[in-house]
Amino acid sequence: MDKKRLQSIYETMLTIRYFEDKALSLFEENQLRGSVHLCTGQEAVAATVCSHLRDEDYITSTHRGHGHCIAKGAEPDKAMAELMGKAAGYCQGRGGSMHIADVTKGNLGANAIVGAGLPIAAGAALSAKLRKTDQVAVAFFGDGASNEGVFHEALNLASVWKLPIIFVCENNQFGISTHVSKSTSVQDIAVRAKAYDIPGEVVDGNDVFSIDEAIKRAIKRAKAGEGPSLIECKTYRWYGHWIGDPQVYRTKEDVESWKKKCPIKRLETYFLENKIMTQQELTVMHNKAVEVIDAAADFAISSSDPDPAFVLDNVYCE
């Protein structure tokens, strides 16, 4: 992978990490309300996959979707404003954390119904096929979604019609409190691809290089008209299901062991060992990301609330 792409992925991961840290602190300061699901620890998947997508390519995202949104090109200030329900947010405060979307960048939305984005992404891919464009769609979803009916319906039809779509499963091992081994009939969700006669592969979801190879193969296949692929990225969420989750279902040791597998640290080690970047250069990038996120938070905090006078707008086309 060339240095420029690697650095760009790294920068996106840092932006996501600091964005999530900031969301957590704003929540703890009671400035941010609602149900907020952080993707800390999973940044490599969104950053690497989206580094191969153009604005005109589509994604559908999940309730744990801040990372996808930023990686697909959203500006952190408007994203943070949306989390805070402000008028300057991407959905002008109508969506919040679980429904954030920047449609101008091809993000068809986070979705608080588990698995619901899969057929929508398949529809986006169908539209690309019918309009004869070379756009691709990526459906991000978690391990839990692979047990929803729509997962199977979407994979089947996408395979039958050879749609240009990549199903990217972020297996962070838990559906709220239930470990994937207690909810899912297979050890690797990727093997479910066999049932739909499409390629399925397991990759280390904390390793940028493994994800990169897999997504490149899948996009090539999609653009060649050969149809969908399923990529299962094994990863781990550092925080609970939502901010405030007491996490009685896992041990501190387990969490700590996964923190040692931090995807950002891992890439930094690679940079240093291969003399691609110096420690000083890494620090500069950290500082830059912190600045961007601090500015985003300031922007969001100082933005005005939405005017209730417009609350009935856009229920229907006017």
Partner: peptide, 28 residues
């Protein structure tokens, strides 16, 4: 023939695919 799609027995996917295609500029 390209604009008439027989689907599997997958009602959720029919509606999901239709809405995905609709937000991307088609009229299913």
């Amino acid at each position: 023939p390209d604009r008439a799609k027989d689907t599997a027995l997958s009602e959720s996917a029919i509606i999901g695919l239709a809405s995905g295609a609709a937000v991307c500029g088609l009229r299913p």
